[in-house]
Amino acid sequence: MADLETLTTRTALDPMDIVIGGPSDAGVTLTEIPFQTRLVLRGLPSDKKFTAAVKGALGVEPPSKPGTVTSSKTARVLWTAPNEWMVYSDDTGLAATLTKAVAGLHAAVTEVTEHYTLIRLSGRHARDVMIKGCAIDLHPREFGPGQCVQSHLGRITVLFDQTDETPSYHILVRASFAEYLWMYLEDAGLEFGVRIEAAG
């Protein structure tokens, strides 16, 4: 039997032995954001008790408008369906807090942290890299901070949102596709220069 003392937590990208570094004037930077709490929240946006309970736990109501994001100091809440949201947070105990907050209501909280990997793509050419493999119009006139999209990127299904004007994108990908997407983004960014940064 494996000695539990010697086991270490690994992310979906750990087996790639990614080397941190790259040119300082790189057009894009890539960062894996490991182990950030990710929750799927389900409930009825028309239920005032539900939205109030969520606001109490997260500091913000879940967005009701498709493709938008609300955020607070505690969490970022992304619209994924009319009755479903993805919650990002640095609070590792948030699943318990949120489950308690919506207890007794027609709602569900599912922790999916390990099911996904979050990759941040940032830099002055980040938009150019994104539009190589994504059919969504990411021009600033159409898409900016506070908006999220579920679509295809490099032929795989992802959820991403823009977090600042740099621009930066946080791309949520299923763990089994993470290695592919990382290599895809490195390759797509090659012409602009890619720097790999450690999260933190």
Binding site: P66, G67, A81, P82, A135, V149, Q150, S151, H152
Partner: peptide, 10 residues
């Protein structure tokens, strides 16, 4: 009806 116009492969 929710997300707006998208390509058919979605």
């Amino acid at each position: 009806p929710w997300c707006g116009p998208r390509d058919d492969n979605e």
